[in-house]
Amino acid sequence: MASRLFFVALAVFCAPANAKSIADQIARIEAPQSPNRQGADPLTLQQILERFHVPGISIAVIYDFKVLWTKSYGVADVETRAPITADTLFQAASLSKPVAAMASLKATQIGKFGLDQDVNTILKSWKLPDSPFGSGAAVTPRMLMSHTSGTGDGFGFPGYEPGAPLPTQQQILDGKKPSALGPVRLVRPALTASQYSGGAAQIEQLALTDATGMPFATIMQDWVLAPIGMTHSSFEQPLPPDMQRYTARAHGPDGKSMGPRWRVYPEQAAAGLWTTAADYALFMIEVQKTLAGRSTTVLDRATMQNMVTPVGVGPYAVGFEIVQEGQGWYFKHNGANWGFRSFAMAHVAKGYGVVIMANGDGGLPAASEIVDRVAAAYGWDMLDKPMLR
Protein backbone atom coordinates (compact mmCIF):
# COMPACT_ATOMS: atom_id res chain seq x y z
CA MET A 1 0.00 0.00 0.00
CA ALA A 2 1.54 3.26 -1.05
CA SER A 3 2.07 5.69 1.78
CA ARG A 4 0.24 8.45 -0.08
CA LEU A 5 -2.93 6.37 0.25
CA PHE A 6 -2.56 6.12 4.00
CA PHE A 7 -5.25 8.06 5.84
CA VAL A 8 -6.20 8.31 9.49
CA ALA A 9 -9.53 9.36 10.96
CA LEU A 10 -9.55 9.70 14.75
CA ALA A 11 -12.35 10.17 17.23
CA VAL A 12 -11.52 10.48 20.93
CA PHE A 13 -14.42 10.01 23.35
CA CYS A 14 -12.94 11.62 26.44
CA ALA A 15 -12.58 14.85 28.37
CA PRO A 16 -10.03 17.30 26.89
CA ALA A 17 -7.73 16.76 29.88
CA ASN A 18 -7.33 13.12 28.89
CA ALA A 19 -6.75 13.72 25.18
CA LYS A 20 -2.97 13.96 25.44
CA SER A 21 -2.60 10.70 27.39
CA ILE A 22 -4.82 8.92 24.87
CA ALA A 23 -2.80 10.35 22.01
CA ASP A 24 0.34 9.03 23.71
CA GLN A 25 -1.19 5.57 24.05
CA ILE A 26 -2.21 5.55 20.39
CA ALA A 27 1.29 6.61 19.39
CA ARG A 28 2.74 3.68 21.35
CA ILE A 29 0.36 1.26 19.61
CA GLU A 30 1.39 2.66 16.22
CA ALA A 31 5.13 2.68 16.97
CA PRO A 32 7.61 0.08 15.65
CA GLN A 33 7.27 -3.19 17.55
CA SER A 34 8.23 -6.76 16.87
CA PRO A 35 5.21 -8.85 15.82
CA ASN A 36 6.15 -11.98 17.73
CA ARG A 37 3.88 -14.35 15.81
CA GLN A 38 5.73 -13.62 12.58
CA GLY A 39 9.21 -13.17 14.08
CA ALA A 40 9.69 -10.10 11.91
CA ASP A 41 11.72 -6.93 12.32
CA PRO A 42 10.08 -4.16 14.35
CA LEU A 43 7.17 -2.71 12.39
CA THR A 44 4.88 0.26 12.73
CA LEU A 45 1.15 -0.32 12.64
CA GLN A 46 1.05 1.04 9.10
CA GLN A 47 3.75 -1.43 8.08
CA ILE A 48 1.71 -4.26 9.63
CA LEU A 49 -1.18 -3.34 7.34
CA GLU A 50 1.14 -3.20 4.35
CA ARG A 51 2.68 -6.57 5.22
CA PHE A 52 -0.72 -8.25 5.22
CA HIS A 53 -2.02 -6.22 2.24
CA VAL A 54 -4.93 -4.71 4.19
CA PRO A 55 -6.21 -1.60 2.37
CA GLY A 56 -8.06 -0.24 5.37
CA ILE A 57 -8.85 -0.94 8.99
CA SER A 58 -10.89 0.64 11.76
CA ILE A 59 -10.20 0.18 15.48
CA ALA A 60 -12.41 0.96 18.49
CA VAL A 61 -10.91 0.69 21.98
CA ILE A 62 -13.18 0.08 24.97
CA TYR A 63 -12.12 1.33 28.39
CA ASP A 64 -14.14 1.69 31.61
CA PHE A 65 -17.34 0.52 29.84
CA LYS A 66 -17.05 3.26 27.20
CA VAL A 67 -15.71 3.70 23.68
CA LEU A 68 -12.49 5.48 24.60
CA TRP A 69 -11.34 6.16 21.05
CA THR A 70 -11.71 5.02 17.49
CA LYS A 71 -9.21 5.39 14.69
CA SER A 72 -9.29 4.44 11.02
CA TYR A 73 -6.36 3.78 8.72
CA GLY A 74 -6.08 3.47 4.97
CA VAL A 75 -8.65 3.44 2.20
CA ALA A 76 -12.16 2.09 1.85
CA ASP A 77 -11.61 1.29 -1.82
CA VAL A 78 -8.29 0.89 -3.64
CA GLU A 79 -9.93 1.81 -6.93
CA THR A 80 -11.42 5.15 -5.89
CA ARG A 81 -8.87 5.72 -3.08
CA ALA A 82 -11.69 6.99 -0.89
CA PRO A 83 -10.47 7.13 2.70
CA ILE A 84 -12.04 5.25 5.56
CA THR A 85 -14.02 7.55 7.83
CA ALA A 86 -15.93 7.08 11.07
CA ASP A 87 -19.05 6.34 8.95
CA THR A 88 -17.48 3.64 6.77
CA LEU A 89 -19.45 0.39 6.95
CA PHE A 90 -17.78 -3.01 7.02
CA GLN A 91 -19.26 -6.48 6.74
CA ALA A 92 -19.02 -7.89 10.26
CA ALA A 93 -19.23 -11.45 8.89
CA SER A 94 -19.52 -13.95 11.77
CA LEU A 95 -19.55 -11.13 14.31
CA SER A 96 -23.21 -11.11 13.24
CA LYS A 97 -23.83 -14.28 15.26
CA PRO A 98 -23.53 -12.83 18.80
CA VAL A 99 -25.78 -9.89 17.85
CA ALA A 100 -28.37 -12.30 16.46
CA ALA A 101 -28.01 -14.41 19.61
CA MET A 102 -28.90 -11.40 21.74
CA ALA A 103 -32.17 -11.05 19.85
CA SER A 104 -33.00 -14.72 20.39
CA LEU A 105 -32.28 -14.32 24.08
CA LYS A 106 -34.64 -11.34 24.07
CA ALA A 107 -37.29 -13.66 22.62
CA THR A 108 -36.75 -16.12 25.48
CA GLN A 109 -36.92 -13.30 28.01
CA ILE A 110 -40.32 -12.13 26.76
CA GLY A 111 -41.67 -15.67 26.50
CA LYS A 112 -41.68 -16.32 22.75
CA PHE A 113 -39.87 -19.63 23.26
CA GLY A 114 -37.53 -21.35 25.69
CA LEU A 115 -33.76 -21.43 25.44
CA ASP A 116 -33.87 -25.19 26.07
CA GLN A 117 -37.01 -25.91 24.05
CA ASP A 118 -36.99 -28.41 21.18
CA VAL A 119 -36.45 -26.14 18.17
CA ASN A 120 -38.87 -28.18 16.04
CA THR A 121 -41.68 -27.12 18.38
CA ILE A 122 -40.77 -23.48 17.62
CA LEU A 123 -40.27 -23.77 13.87
CA LYS A 124 -43.39 -23.45 11.71
CA SER A 125 -42.19 -22.99 8.12
CA TRP A 126 -39.53 -25.72 8.13
CA LYS A 127 -38.45 -28.63 10.34
CA LEU A 128 -35.02 -29.97 11.18
CA PRO A 129 -35.06 -33.59 9.95
CA ASP A 130 -35.06 -36.23 12.66
CA SER A 131 -31.70 -37.28 13.97
CA PRO A 132 -30.24 -40.29 12.17
CA PHE A 133 -28.57 -41.30 15.43
CA GLY A 134 -31.62 -42.55 17.28
CA SER A 135 -32.81 -41.19 20.59
CA GLY A 136 -30.92 -38.41 22.30
CA ALA A 137 -31.18 -34.80 23.26
CA ALA A 138 -33.47 -32.64 21.15
CA VAL A 139 -31.82 -29.71 19.39
CA THR A 140 -32.52 -26.44 21.23
CA PRO A 141 -31.82 -22.74 20.66
CA ARG A 142 -29.05 -22.88 23.26
CA MET A 143 -27.31 -25.62 21.27
CA LEU A 144 -27.78 -23.84 17.96
CA MET A 145 -26.16 -20.67 19.28
CA SER A 146 -23.28 -22.45 21.03
CA HIS A 147 -22.23 -24.72 18.14
CA THR A 148 -23.22 -27.88 20.01
CA SER A 149 -26.38 -28.80 18.09
CA GLY A 150 -24.69 -31.49 15.98
CA THR A 151 -25.11 -29.68 12.66
CA GLY A 152 -21.96 -30.25 10.68
CA ASP A 153 -21.56 -27.36 8.28
CA GLY A 154 -18.23 -26.01 9.43
CA PHE A 155 -17.88 -24.10 6.15
CA GLY A 156 -18.48 -20.40 5.79
CA PHE A 157 -21.08 -18.92 3.50
CA PRO A 158 -19.63 -17.67 0.17
CA GLY A 159 -22.18 -14.92 -0.46
CA TYR A 160 -23.86 -13.94 -3.74
CA GLU A 161 -22.99 -11.28 -6.26
CA PRO A 162 -25.22 -8.20 -6.18
CA GLY A 163 -28.29 -8.74 -8.35
CA ALA A 164 -28.07 -12.55 -8.27
CA PRO A 165 -31.13 -14.56 -7.16
CA LEU A 166 -31.08 -15.11 -3.40
CA PRO A 167 -32.29 -18.27 -1.66
CA THR A 168 -34.95 -18.26 1.02
CA GLN A 169 -34.05 -19.46 4.49
CA GLN A 170 -35.74 -22.78 3.76
CA GLN A 171 -33.71 -23.18 0.55
CA ILE A 172 -30.52 -22.39 2.47
CA LEU A 173 -31.30 -25.03 5.09
CA ASP A 174 -32.28 -27.66 2.52
CA GLY A 175 -29.44 -26.84 0.13
CA LYS A 176 -31.83 -26.14 -2.75
CA LYS A 177 -31.13 -23.75 -5.61
CA PRO A 178 -30.32 -20.94 -5.74
CA SER A 179 -28.46 -21.82 -2.54
CA ALA A 180 -24.76 -22.29 -3.28
CA LEU A 181 -24.22 -24.90 -0.56
CA GLY A 182 -25.54 -28.23 0.60
CA PRO A 183 -28.21 -28.81 3.24
CA VAL A 184 -27.83 -28.18 6.95
CA ARG A 185 -28.23 -31.52 8.70
CA LEU A 186 -27.21 -33.30 11.88
CA VAL A 187 -23.92 -35.16 11.58
CA ARG A 188 -23.70 -36.26 15.25
CA PRO A 189 -26.02 -36.42 18.25
CA ALA A 190 -26.74 -33.06 19.81
CA LEU A 191 -24.59 -31.84 22.70
CA THR A 192 -21.88 -34.47 22.19
CA ALA A 193 -19.22 -32.25 20.58
CA SER A 194 -18.52 -28.70 19.53
CA GLN A 195 -18.32 -27.86 15.83
CA TYR A 196 -18.65 -24.35 14.48
CA SER A 197 -21.82 -24.17 12.41
CA GLY A 198 -23.13 -21.21 10.45
CA GLY A 199 -26.09 -23.33 9.44
CA ALA A 200 -27.11 -23.61 13.07
CA ALA A 201 -27.35 -19.82 13.23
CA GLN A 202 -29.70 -19.92 10.25
CA ILE A 203 -31.96 -22.48 11.93
CA GLU A 204 -32.11 -20.14 14.92
CA GLN A 205 -32.87 -17.18 12.62
CA LEU A 206 -35.83 -19.06 11.15
CA ALA A 207 -37.02 -20.08 14.62
CA LEU A 208 -36.92 -16.44 15.70
CA THR A 209 -38.86 -15.18 12.69
CA ASP A 210 -41.38 -18.04 12.88
CA ALA A 211 -41.98 -17.38 16.59
CA THR A 212 -42.43 -13.61 16.21
CA GLY A 213 -43.92 -13.29 12.73
CA MET A 214 -41.50 -10.44 12.04
CA PRO A 215 -38.76 -10.07 9.40
CA PHE A 216 -35.32 -10.76 10.83
CA ALA A 217 -33.83 -7.36 9.97
CA THR A 218 -36.79 -5.65 11.66
CA ILE A 219 -36.35 -7.71 14.81
CA MET A 220 -32.67 -6.85 14.92
CA GLN A 221 -33.29 -3.14 14.37
CA ASP A 222 -36.11 -2.84 16.90
CA TRP A 223 -34.79 -5.18 19.60
CA VAL A 224 -31.01 -4.71 19.48
CA LEU A 225 -29.48 -2.15 17.13
CA ALA A 226 -31.70 0.85 17.88
CA PRO A 227 -31.91 0.35 21.66
CA ILE A 228 -28.12 0.08 21.95
CA GLY A 229 -27.59 3.10 19.69
CA MET A 230 -25.99 1.29 16.76
CA THR A 231 -27.12 3.93 14.27
CA HIS A 232 -24.57 2.93 11.60
CA SER A 233 -25.57 -0.75 11.48
CA SER A 234 -28.02 -2.87 9.51
CA PHE A 235 -28.89 -6.52 8.91
CA GLU A 236 -30.66 -5.67 5.64
CA GLN A 237 -29.41 -7.90 2.80
CA PRO A 238 -28.90 -6.49 0.28
CA LEU A 239 -28.07 -3.23 2.02
CA PRO A 240 -30.48 -0.37 1.20
CA PRO A 241 -29.16 1.96 -1.54
CA ASP A 242 -28.96 4.96 0.80
CA MET A 243 -26.46 3.07 2.96
CA GLN A 244 -24.40 1.56 0.16
CA ARG A 245 -22.46 4.76 -0.41
CA TYR A 246 -20.90 4.36 3.04
CA THR A 247 -19.58 0.84 2.47
CA ALA A 248 -15.99 -0.28 2.24
CA ARG A 249 -15.00 -2.44 -0.70
CA ALA A 250 -13.97 -6.08 -0.35
CA HIS A 251 -10.31 -6.84 -1.16
CA GLY A 252 -8.42 -10.09 -1.65
CA PRO A 253 -5.29 -11.44 0.04
CA ASP A 254 -3.15 -9.28 -2.25
CA GLY A 255 -5.00 -6.13 -1.23
CA LYS A 256 -6.61 -5.73 -4.66
CA SER A 257 -10.28 -5.45 -5.56
CA MET A 258 -12.01 -8.61 -6.76
CA GLY A 259 -14.81 -7.47 -9.06
CA PRO A 260 -18.01 -6.47 -7.26
CA ARG A 261 -17.67 -4.13 -4.29
CA TRP A 262 -18.94 -6.85 -1.98
CA ARG A 263 -21.19 -9.89 -1.87
CA VAL A 264 -24.72 -10.24 -0.50
CA TYR A 265 -25.44 -12.56 2.44
CA PRO A 266 -29.05 -13.72 2.85
CA GLU A 267 -27.67 -15.74 5.79
CA GLN A 268 -28.25 -12.70 7.97
CA ALA A 269 -27.84 -14.20 11.45
CA ALA A 270 -24.63 -15.95 10.45
CA ALA A 271 -22.97 -13.27 8.31
CA GLY A 272 -25.29 -10.39 7.38
CA LEU A 273 -24.43 -7.45 9.64
CA TRP A 274 -23.02 -4.23 8.18
CA THR A 275 -21.53 -2.03 10.91
CA THR A 276 -18.66 0.15 12.09
CA ALA A 277 -16.03 -0.64 14.71
CA ALA A 278 -17.51 2.03 17.00
CA ASP A 279 -21.04 0.66 16.66
CA TYR A 280 -19.94 -2.89 17.37
CA ALA A 281 -18.03 -1.65 20.41
CA LEU A 282 -21.36 -0.35 21.75
CA PHE A 283 -22.71 -3.88 21.45
CA MET A 284 -19.76 -5.33 23.37
CA ILE A 285 -20.18 -2.65 26.04
CA GLU A 286 -23.88 -3.49 26.37
CA VAL A 287 -22.90 -7.06 27.21
CA GLN A 288 -20.39 -5.83 29.79
CA LYS A 289 -22.72 -3.28 31.38
CA THR A 290 -25.59 -5.75 31.64
CA LEU A 291 -23.34 -8.34 33.29
CA ALA A 292 -22.19 -5.64 35.72
CA GLY A 293 -25.77 -4.77 36.63
CA ARG A 294 -25.52 -1.35 34.96
CA SER A 295 -27.97 -1.83 32.07
CA THR A 296 -31.19 -3.63 31.14
CA THR A 297 -31.51 -1.97 27.74
CA VAL A 298 -31.94 -5.27 25.87
CA LEU A 299 -31.61 -8.12 28.38
CA ASP A 300 -31.70 -8.54 32.12
CA ARG A 301 -28.55 -9.69 33.87
CA ALA A 302 -29.61 -13.33 34.30
CA THR A 303 -30.49 -13.71 30.63
CA MET A 304 -27.29 -11.97 29.50
CA GLN A 305 -25.25 -14.40 31.58
CA ASN A 306 -26.03 -17.04 28.95
CA MET A 307 -23.85 -15.15 26.47
CA VAL A 308 -20.73 -15.70 28.60
CA THR A 309 -21.45 -19.12 30.14
CA PRO A 310 -20.13 -22.05 28.06
CA VAL A 311 -22.61 -24.87 27.69
CA GLY A 312 -20.05 -27.45 28.86
CA VAL A 313 -19.14 -28.89 25.46
CA GLY A 314 -16.47 -26.75 23.82
CA PRO A 315 -15.63 -23.08 24.41
CA TYR A 316 -18.84 -21.43 23.21
CA ALA A 317 -21.59 -19.83 25.22
CA VAL A 318 -24.72 -18.47 23.53
CA GLY A 319 -23.12 -16.38 20.78
CA PHE A 320 -19.57 -15.88 22.04
CA GLU A 321 -16.44 -17.94 22.47
CA ILE A 322 -15.24 -17.71 26.08
CA VAL A 323 -11.51 -17.88 26.77
CA GLN A 324 -9.14 -17.41 29.66
CA GLU A 325 -6.08 -15.35 28.78
CA GLY A 326 -3.57 -14.94 31.59
CA GLN A 327 -5.61 -14.07 34.66
CA GLY A 328 -8.61 -12.73 32.77
CA TRP A 329 -11.77 -14.15 31.20
CA TYR A 330 -12.84 -12.74 27.85
CA PHE A 331 -15.70 -13.10 25.39
CA LYS A 332 -14.72 -12.84 21.75
CA HIS A 333 -15.56 -13.65 18.13
CA ASN A 334 -13.99 -13.20 14.72
CA GLY A 335 -15.45 -12.96 11.27
CA ALA A 336 -14.51 -13.72 7.66
CA ASN A 337 -16.67 -12.79 4.69
CA TRP A 338 -15.49 -12.45 1.09
CA GLY A 339 -12.94 -9.62 1.27
CA PHE A 340 -13.73 -8.60 4.86
CA ARG A 341 -12.33 -9.62 8.25
CA SER A 342 -13.39 -8.63 11.76
CA PHE A 343 -12.51 -9.31 15.38
CA ALA A 344 -13.98 -8.32 18.74
CA MET A 345 -12.79 -9.16 22.26
CA ALA A 346 -13.72 -7.81 25.68
CA HIS A 347 -13.20 -8.64 29.34
CA VAL A 348 -16.18 -10.26 31.03
CA ALA A 349 -16.01 -8.02 34.11
CA LYS A 350 -13.46 -5.22 33.78
CA GLY A 351 -14.99 -3.01 31.10
CA TYR A 352 -12.25 -3.03 28.48
CA GLY A 353 -11.88 -4.50 25.01
CA VAL A 354 -11.25 -3.83 21.33
CA VAL A 355 -13.09 -4.14 18.01
CA ILE A 356 -11.31 -4.28 14.65
CA MET A 357 -12.88 -4.14 11.18
CA ALA A 358 -10.85 -4.65 7.98
CA ASN A 359 -11.66 -4.60 4.27
CA GLY A 360 -9.11 -7.20 3.19
CA ASP A 361 -8.55 -10.94 3.48
CA GLY A 362 -5.36 -10.29 5.46
CA GLY A 363 -7.27 -8.56 8.21
CA LEU A 364 -7.13 -11.28 10.87
CA PRO A 365 -3.34 -11.60 11.19
CA ALA A 366 -3.16 -7.81 11.24
CA ALA A 367 -5.87 -7.75 13.90
CA SER A 368 -3.98 -10.23 16.07
CA GLU A 369 -1.03 -7.84 16.19
CA ILE A 370 -3.28 -4.91 16.99
CA VAL A 371 -4.93 -6.79 19.86
CA ASP A 372 -1.50 -7.53 21.36
CA ARG A 373 -0.56 -3.85 21.13
CA VAL A 374 -3.82 -2.61 22.64
CA ALA A 375 -3.64 -5.18 25.44
CA ALA A 376 -0.10 -4.16 26.24
CA ALA A 377 -0.82 -0.44 26.09
CA TYR A 378 -3.69 -0.70 28.54
CA GLY A 379 -2.30 -3.44 30.79
CA TRP A 380 -4.93 -6.07 30.12
CA ASP A 381 -4.63 -9.04 32.47
CA MET A 382 -4.12 -11.35 29.50
CA LEU A 383 -0.46 -10.33 29.76
CA ASP A 384 1.76 -11.10 32.76
CA LYS A 385 4.17 -8.34 31.78
CA PRO A 386 2.67 -5.80 29.40
CA MET A 387 5.13 -4.66 26.76
CA LEU A 388 3.95 -1.05 26.95
CA ARG A 389 2.97 1.18 29.84
Rank of each mutant, 00 (worst) to 15 (best):
L225P: 00
Q288F: 07
W69D: 02
F113V: 04
V99W: 05
V224G: 01
F13C: 05
L128K: 12
Y352V: 03
A200G: 14
V119S: 02
M1N: 05
R185H: 05
Y63D: 10
L273W: 06
T297N: 09
V374A: 02
G152E: 03
P98Y: 05
R142Y: 00
G39M: 10
F6T: 10
P315A: 02
V67D: 01
H333E: 00
L128M: 12
F155S: 13
N120C: 09
A375G: 12
F65D: 09
V184K: 03
I29D: 00
G312D: 00
E50H: 14
T85S: 13
S233L: 07
V287F: 06
Q202D: 10
D130L: 13
P55Y: 08
A344G: 13
N306F: 08
G362T: 06
F133M: 04
T275L: 07
G362D: 03
K385Y: 00
W329K: 14
P129W: 13
T303Y: 07
T44G: 13
T80E: 08
N337Q: 04
Y352F: 15
V264A: 01
D153F: 13
A211I: 04
A226E: 07
A281C: 13
A277T: 10
P165A: 02
M220F: 09
V298S: 01
V61A: 03
M145G: 03
R185P: 00
P189M: 03
P189T: 07
G314R: 15
S104L: 15
D24R: 15
G163A: 05
A278Y: 08
T297L: 12
A367D: 05
S58W: 08
A19Q: 14
I322T: 05
M220I: 05
G252M: 05
A366W: 11
H251L: 09
S368R: 15
W380L: 08
R389C: 00
A217W: 06
S72G: 14
Q324H: 13
G56E: 06
A103L: 07
V99H: 02
H251S: 03
Q46P: 00
F155H: 13
K97M: 07
H53M: 07
D41N: 14
D254L: 15
Q195D: 06
Y265T: 01
K106I: 01
G272Q: 04
S131A: 10
A15G: 11
